[in-house]
Simulated scan of single mutants.
Amino acid sequence: MADWNPGAYLQYTDERSRPFTELVARVPGSPTTIVDLGCGPGHLTPVLRARWPEAHVTGVDASPAMIERAREADPGTEYVLADLSTDEHRADLVISNAALQWVPGHRDLLTTLADRAAQTFAFQVPGNHDAPSHRLLREVAARAPYADVVGPVERRATADPGEYLEILARPGWSVDAWETTYTHVLHGPDPVLRWISATGAQPTLQALEAKDPALRARFEEEFGAALRAAYPEHAHGTPLAFRRVFVVATRV
């Protein structure tokens, strides 16, 4: 797919940052080196610095636009452009927030990533692949004329906490796995469309844009109408339920 859009991604910074803050709070010990896999535009590095101000942080991301934005916003941190599936950085803490679901076969990669952590391997991934937002994305994209352009939209299914526990619970490791469903209250016109357009729907939208900008606009209108029906606006805003899965694996 084409590159990410840091500006669009940062529209809901508070909502997207909260799971990472809660993940970090469950990481034990005092790592002196940290690798953040899928660091995005670097907006979460301050969370790591607040918890471990003396640690050396390295951010890794496969998106040139995200790495460029991170380096501009935070020139004092090392940010590296690399594929998460092949990156070989080692650190006391290897951590990842809402990124591993984009790596094909990420379950098979988990023990390798954990082995690169001297103390702790921690990650969070979305668990909302069957939420209305994602079901509707697949349904609308499967209709003509979009299907001929984008093909079947992949169901990027992540595992349940128990499955991640089974993968990572090996001799010498203690694993804490859990899930949380957040109910974000979004505001403004078509907030769920804006949310998913910056993340899960981005490959679909980019493919349509490359074919014909008018086709993308038509898709957004159709998809947006379906999302408005699934996520009606209330006086207090538009509630968006978002399930996330967390894992903290620590050497013992």
Rank of each mutant, 00 (worst) to 15 (best):
V94P: 06
D115Y: 00
F121I: 14
T120W: 13
F121Q: 06
R116P: 06
H129E: 12
S133M: 08
A91M: 04
E88P: 02
L84D: 02
E88N: 13
R107G: 01
T86Y: 10
L100H: 04
D130I: 10
W102K: 14
L137C: 04
T111A: 15
G127R: 14
L136N: 11
E139S: 14
R107A: 15
V140C: 01
P126V: 11
N97G: 00
A122R: 03
A118W: 01
L113M: 13
A141G: 11
N128L: 09
I95T: 07
E139G: 09
S96Y: 00
I95S: 00
D83G: 07
A141R: 09
P126L: 12
V140Y: 03
A117D: 07
L100G: 02
A118L: 11
R90A: 15
F121M: 12
D87N: 13
T111C: 12
L110M: 09
F121G: 05
N97M: 00
D108F: 07
T120F: 08
T120E: 08
V140G: 03
H129G: 00
W102M: 14
N97Q: 02
T120N: 12
A117M: 09
T111Q: 12
A114C: 13
R107F: 09
T111V: 15
S96Q: 06
S133T: 07
R135D: 12
S133D: 08
A98F: 07
A122Q: 07
W102H: 15
L109I: 01
H129A: 12
E139H: 14
E139Q: 15
A131T: 07
A99R: 00
D92Q: 14
Q101I: 03
A118M: 01
A118I: 02
P132S: 14
A117H: 01
D83C: 04
P126W: 13
R90C: 14
Q101L: 06
T120L: 11
R135H: 12
D83K: 00
A131D: 15
D92F: 02
R138F: 04
A98S: 14
T111P: 00
P132D: 09
F123A: 01
Q124Y: 01
R107N: 10
S85H: 04
L109S: 05
H134P: 02
S133A: 15
R135E: 13
L84K: 08
I95M: 03
D92V: 09
T86E: 13
V125E: 04
S85P: 03
A98I: 08
D130E: 14
T112E: 15
H134F: 09
L93Y: 03
A131E: 10
L136T: 11
D87E: 14
A114Y: 05
